[in-house]
């Protein structure tokens, strides 16, 4: 199967300092690709280039064979790429359901006249959007908090709500930036179960994650960055045994495991 997301030789500099340089990646449907690397390795910058927050200086991004390099975020979202943030970015002053609906709207035709005249097609769209959103809340375990304010949810649930909202846009590719950040071990384990569930839905998942044990367990493939450059790419086993990785990354993290 060919990769649904293909990024080739992505480069992005800030004030002459290369944050990301020559990074290529391929994400396949129904697989998890983890992007790892020490702090400042350029992982989030790479996500920003892929999702249209930054326009990459060099390289191309192909989504489902379509060139989306440098397009506005909403166009990339509509082409089938969705993401979460390391620091939670929900719409705090809305309910859980409304947060997911915002994602869902991108897949619902906008009918201002239909809304005014309350046409059948409009009613059907509204109902479908709501049903799909409720399904997603169910999937992430938030069905009972559908009418709670997003800001009032506990931290772990806010993270799960972000995932539900991202899924509402029906992504072919889902980028998750440290979905386990700030969570306790049992929350992380359940988040990783959710990620595995999303993989089984046929979504191509790209995860930035620091917890090495989980990364090794869950990933189909791993891309290792250091100082903005790719230093290894392969299966968890290949990456673990790669001497450059051990030198640049694993050697250092093993000393700090448990943070």
């Amino acid at each position: 199967m060919s990769a649904v997301l293909q990024a080739k030789a992505i480069g992005k500099s800030f004030g002459g300092l290369a944050a990301v340089q020559g990074v290529s990646l391929e994400a396949r449907s129904g697989q998890i690709l983890s992007v790892i690397g020490p702090n400042g390795a350029g992982k989030t910058t790479l996500f920003n280039c892929l999702s249209g927050i930054y326009r990459p200086d060099t390289g191309t991004v192909l989504l489902d064979g379509k060139d989306v390099t440098g397009l506005a975020s909403h166009k990339i979202a509509q082409a089938g790429l969705s993401r979460s943030f390391q620091n939670i970015r929900l719409f705090p002053e809305m309910t859980s359901l409304q947060n997911v609906l915002v994602g869902r709207f991108s897949r619902t035709p906008f009918r201002p006249m239909g809304a005014l005249l309350r046409t059948k097609a409009w009613h059907a769209d509204e109902r479908a959007a709501k049903e799909k959103s409720l399904e997603l809340l169910e999937l992430v375990g938030l069905a009972e908090r559908r009418d709670d304010w997003a800001r009032a949810l506990p931290y772990g649930l806010q993270r799960r709500l972000e995932v539900a909202r991202a899924l509402a846009t029906e992504p072919k590719v889902l980028l998750l930036d440290e979905p386990g950040a700030g969570m306790n071990p049992s929350e992380i384990a359940s988040m990783m179960d959710l990620v595995a569930k999303i993989r089984s839905l046929g979504v191509a998942v790209v995860v930035i994650e620091h917890h090495m044990k989980l990364v090794m367990e869950i990933s189909d493939r791993i891309l290792v960055l250091d100082h903005g450059e790719p230093i290894a790419e392969g299966t968890p086993r290949e990456v673990r045994d790669d001497p450059r990785v051990i030198e640049a990354y694993l050697g250092r993290t093993e000393a700090t495991v448990g943070h």
Binding site: S51, A72, S73, H74, A77, M94, S106, F110, E126, T169
Partner: peptide, 25 residues
């Protein structure tokens, strides 16, 4: 209560995120 209103509130609360959700900001 309406879709337009939810969308407008989303843009007001986080414009970048609204765009990432596929909204034409």
């Amino acid at each position: 209560r309406t879709r337009l209103g939810i969308a407008l509130r989303a843009v007001a609360q986080d414009r970048t995120m609204a765009s990432l959700c596929g909204m034409k900001v």
